[in-house]
Design a protein around this nucleic acid. Structure first.
Lengths: 200, 200
DNA sequence: TTTTTGTTTAACAAAATTGTCAAACAAAAT
DNA sequence: ATTTTGTTTGACAATTTTGTTAAACAAAAA
């Protein structure tokens, strides 16, 4: 096979992503991942050198993808309300696909901050797009279409209201005695409610 | 020392709590904890049998304490608004003390759900207190003092708005380019803003 | 004083996990 | 057909981490 086929590599990576970010098994061993992927454990090392690097690739890819999607939205030419709606949609999709990404970001960015700092910095035009969005928020406040507060707080609220119910899913499910399907149904309803909170 | 002195035991437990829940070092080894506590590693086993049990004791205690405090508030005789304010205060205090508790709850309750289910169930009058609070919320909506939505969503919002900025601290700090002190200052401001969102 | 009780320690054993290697292998290129 | 290239495997080594044990120890009780 002189042609790099990268089928196995992809497969391992996807399996790892599923186990780490979808099922939340942060402590999964190379053996578990190899078994789940149905390949020899040595292949993980062949393709990714170490468990650490495999984790890093998976994590970084997911994080980058989410960030790109979010930045694309806030940098788009949509009107403000459409932008916020789209932001909620993107989050909703992403959290449905990878419920544990948020949690891992928290832990990882704390464990090895230096490792990821540059990654954030190197996103082209990232900081500026965020500054512009904050300005837009400020402008909407002056127009009176949204509640007045520090723009950063407004932006945090968007994230908090959509993301937290995913992060805290096990707690809320238990607290309110809800089945998995009942909880998911509840999550679907939240978008409209959130919009009504975010806009006057 | 025929009298059980439990000073060392306490000390180990507190050190473990600091490392696990305050510093977010989920993967800390028994050696690291022993070193941080300045004791011989064998003592962890002497007092707690295994790393797992030590973690479990620390985690369960913190979780129980938080739950008790929250239940005490929602079950209290305070008026509705005072109750919500107090709820925000409790969360604020707890998250300041143990910023990673939330994150760990998420991961733990997912990893070994059965282990913690009974714990939740066995909280005396827990479910009922929550049901009553939800009724209270519903009543406030009828009175028109708060925005109308599913009461469960209202309760989720309370938690989300106060807790998420702690959970996602590393992300937001980076996103908005804030120092640690600047971020903490921001968090302090949120209470009033949150109240204005939660009430009409 | 010596016995008893509970604590602390160092040395050791066991387990779990990661990482390496050389050899077997398959398929395309020569 | 043979070589080359990249893939896969099993056996093995290294490391890290946890858990156990027996002996040393200190202080109160007998």
């Amino acid at each position: 096979m002189p042609v790099k086929d990268c089928k196995t590599e992809q497969h391992i990576k996807e399996t790892a992503r599923r186990i780490f970010l979808k099922e939340g098994k942060m402590l999964a061993t190379t053996q578990e991942i190899a078994d789940a992927a149905g390949v020899n454990r040595t292949l993980l090392h062949y393709y990714f050198r170490s468990r650490d690097m495999l984790f890093n690739v998976v994590f970084t890819e997911a994080l980058t993808k989410l960030r790109e999607r979010l930045h694309e939205v806030i940098g788009s030419q949509l009107g403000f309300r459409q932008k916020v709606e789209k932001l909620l949609d993107v989050f909703f999709e992403d959290l449905t696909e990878l419920p544990y990404l948020e949690t891992f970001i928290t832990l990882q960015l704390n464990q090895e901050p230096h490792k990821y700092e540059e990654m954030f910095v190197h996103l082209p035009g990232g900081k500026e797009r965020i500054r512009n969005f904050l300005k837009e928020i400020h402008h909407e406040m002056e127009k009176g279409t949204i509640p007045v507060m520090k723009p950063i707080n407004y932006m945090m609220n968007i994230f908090a209201l959509i993301a937290y119910p995913y992060v805290a899913k096990p707690v809320f499910k238990n607290m309110f005695d809800l089945s998995d399907t009942a909880y998911n149904k509840l999550l679907l309803d939240r978008k409209e409610m959130i919009l009504s909170l975010l806009f006057n």
